[in-house]
């Protein structure tokens, strides 16, 4: 459950106006957190929220909200939650609106700030886990290691025939990076993305695309139902299927590392409680717990020692896979998403 964006059920109007939490946030004994919901929520409750309540007596209530709703809330000066646990693109948008409080690294008790890499330990947000967009394949269609081993090969429908799926614009981040890799751009020269070139490359693979997925659930379902034999999707989604015995595999080469992070609304009713929750969440034991269950990568380097080596190979950003991958440049996306969106619409309808 990484959920850069929530399943898109929330009605526009409802999202704008309705207060969805009782005003209990006023009482100091509660922190209200936005998270992506579903399994993610269950796992975080088990390893973070409940232990945190035991340790501090502060209750944790989780709610769902889309990026648009979080922004509307801030704009309407009606902030009804304290902590945001979301893909870093949402947090970057909120940072640009000056909606976030600085994190109080100096007063952390459970986590040593230096254990979190500086790239993901920012003034107003800290990463709580890493996830990856990877190349997944059907072992039935491509047995014995004869699967595509790069995005260039993913793009090669003659050598590797079969229907495919990639992320839709609706996720916020269609895989322009993979298109450029397929077109021969080296990993370290991806940004700033040459949008026109990326779409030209996307056009070459489009006839093979059965559907662009817009929710993580859909991407997994299409692989499970054999609607597609190849897909670019979030590693956690495929891993769950593989753990259940589905004949699927992950190619870690050229994986894109993405960041899930936490931050606090500066106008939150319980900023202090939020600071404590983040501090608690990022400690090695908690991270090892939830990352093991979600198969995402920890950000606290002390957590690696608590995880079995076999599992580390399946974790984005871990020493075992980090050198095969690259970090997504979220700032570029925030600057250019509008343009990409427009171009995407033109491309898809053209």
């Amino acid at each position: 459950m990484s959920g850069l964006i929530l399943p898109r059920r929330t009605l526009l109007a409802a999202g704008l106006a309705m207060p969805f939490v009782k005003t209990a946030a006023a009482q100091a004994g509660e922190v209200i957190i936005r998270n992506p919901g579903g399994v993610y929520d269950d796992v975080m409750r088990k390893y973070v929220y409940d232990p945190f309540t035991q340790a501090t007596g502060i209750k944790v209530t989780a709610v769902a909200a889309t990026a648009a709703k979080l922004l509307a809330m801030f704009r309407a000066n009606n902030v009804e939650l304290d902590v945001i646990d979301a893909g870093d693109s949402i947090l970057e948008q909120l940072r640009r609106q000056n909606a976030l409080a600085p994190l109080d690294y100096g007063n952390w008790r459970w986590t040593k700030p230096d254990d979190i890499p500086a790239e993901v330990r920012l003034p107003t947000r800290a990463a709580n886990m890493l996830y990856g967009s990877v190349l997944a394949y059907s072992k039935e269609a491509f047995p014995d290691g004869r699967h595509p081993k790069s995005w260039a090969e993913f793009w090669d429908a003659t050598k590797f025939p079969g229907p495919r799926s990639l992320a839709d614009m609706a996720t916020g981040n269609p895989y322009l990076e993979f298109a450029l890799l397929a077109d021969g751009v080296p990993k370290d020269k991806l940004y700033p993305i040459d949008i026109d070139r990326a779409f030209r490359a996307m056009g070459r693979i489009r006839p093979q695309i059965r559907k662009f997925w817009d929710t993580g659930a859909l991407s997994a379902q299409m692989m499970a139902d054999k609607e597609v034999v190849l897909a670019g999707l979030w590693n956690g989604r495929v891993q769950v299927l593989m753990d259940r015995g589905a004949p699927l595999g992950i190619e870690w080469n050229e994986n894109m590392i993405e960041v899930q992070a936490v931050g606090i609304f500066k106008d939150a009713k319980n900023v202090a409680g939020g600071q404590k929750l983040i501090d608690f969440m990022l400690q090695p034991e908690a991270q090892a717990g939830y990352c093991r269950d979600l198969t995402y990568g920890p950000t606290n380097k002390q957590a690696f020692a608590l995880l079995p080596a076999e599992q580390l190979t399946r974790m984005p950003g871990s020493p075992a896979s980090a050198d095969k991958g690259f970090y997504k440049n979220i700032a570029w996306w925030e600057d250019n998403r509008d343009r990409v969106n427009r171009q995407w619409s033109r491309w898809i309808l053209g």
Binding site: T66, A68, L71, A170, R337, D338, N341, S345
Partner: peptide, 16 residues
């Protein structure tokens, strides 16, 4: 693609 999908993207993705 239907028009409401574009509207939704403008709201959700780009806050336009």
């Amino acid at each position: 693609i239907m028009i409401a999908m574009l509207i939704e993207r403008e709201i959700e993705l780009t806050q336009n």
